[in-house]
């Protein structure tokens, strides 16, 4: 069986890595990673704006964003993907590639989840930071830009990496609208071979495991280091205090 899997890798590694790229759209593992990285990069500013709106004193800003966050938390991602698949071409009036549909969905979905992380990060700093910054003559935005967000976002780095891991796992759902990602490529391989579905999907699971495990490992290392630094202990000191970064369950998938 291991021989079968090595043979699959030898025969199809290019398809699994970049899909049918020179002759068709970019796919495979490369597309999975690009899609996840792009969604995180776009969801990040969205999540900061949403967090600020949720902490705002104006109900007109706070309520709609709160509703969006609860909505995305209560509805399966699959349902949101189907909605985008239906609505995005309808609103833009163009033939949108499934990649863009998936990207839109992931930005909204992960933006909503990360906004909870950002919000917790800002709240956990305490109001004294804001008061002090305002007393020193910063305006609201100046205080946010130079005092609050740099601290909150630094403490959030591990959470952002675990959101990245969830996003990689979320991209598999693009399968339902035929986004050419790694899962899609594995299904193509399976359809060509027909006789070795177990080997193909085990290989697929191993690849995802390797990527997600390494990223989770990095996130845990960073989390410990940041916890130590926040406690004012030099890196490398044995007495590491418990992590104080806000523990928000990123969505599992």
């Amino acid at each position: 069986m291991i021989h079968d899997m090595i043979a699959i890798v030898q025969d199809y590694w290019l398809l699994l890595l970049i899909g049918q790229y020179p002759n068709g759209p970019l796919g495979g593992l490369a597309n999975t990673l690009i899609l996840s990285a792009l969604s995180i990069a776009l969801a990040f500013p969205v999540s900061i704006l949403m967090a600020l709106a949720r902490l705002s004193k104006w109900r007109l800003l706070r309520w709609p964003v709160t509703a969006v966050v609860y909505f995305t938390r209560g509805v399966p991602l699959l349902m949101l993907i189907l909605w985008s698949y239906f609505l995005v071409p309808l609103w833009t009036g163009a033939d949108v590639p499934s990649f863009v549909t998936m990207l839109t969905t992931l930005v909204i979905y992960q933006g909503a989840f990360m906004s909870e992380v950002v919000r917790a990060g800002i709240v956990s700093l305490g109001s004294g930071q804001m008061d002090a910054a305002r007393a020193l003559g910063h305006g609201y935005f100046g205080a946010m830009r130079y005092v609050i967000l740099p601290q909150a976002l630094y403490n959030m780095i591990p959470s952002i990496i675990s959101t990245f891991v969830s996003t990689i796992k979320d991209t598999t759902l693009g399968y339902v609208i035929n986004v050419p990602d790694l899962t899609f490529a594995a299904n193509q391989v399976n359809n060509q071979l027909l006789t070795q579905p177990f080997q193909v999907f085990l290989l697929l699971a191993i690849v995802y495991y390797a990527i997600c495990w390494s990223l989770t490992y990095v996130a845990n290392r960073l989390e410990r280091r940041i916890a130590r630094r926040r406690a004012g202990v030099r890196v490398g000191n044995a007495a590491a205090p418990a992590p104080v970064t806000p523990k928000i369950a990123t969505e599992q998938l």
């Binding site: 796992k169 899962t183 579905p197 177990f198 193909v200 999907f201 697929l204």
Partner: peptide
């Protein structure tokens, strides 16, 4: 570790398309 780092959809596919045939 396996169940947390492999996407749920891939786990389902491994069960239904893979293990089912074995």
């Amino acid at each position: 570790s396996y169940h947390r780092n492999v996407p749920t959809l891939v786990q389902l596919m491994l069960w239904y398309f893979g293990i089912f045939t074995l």
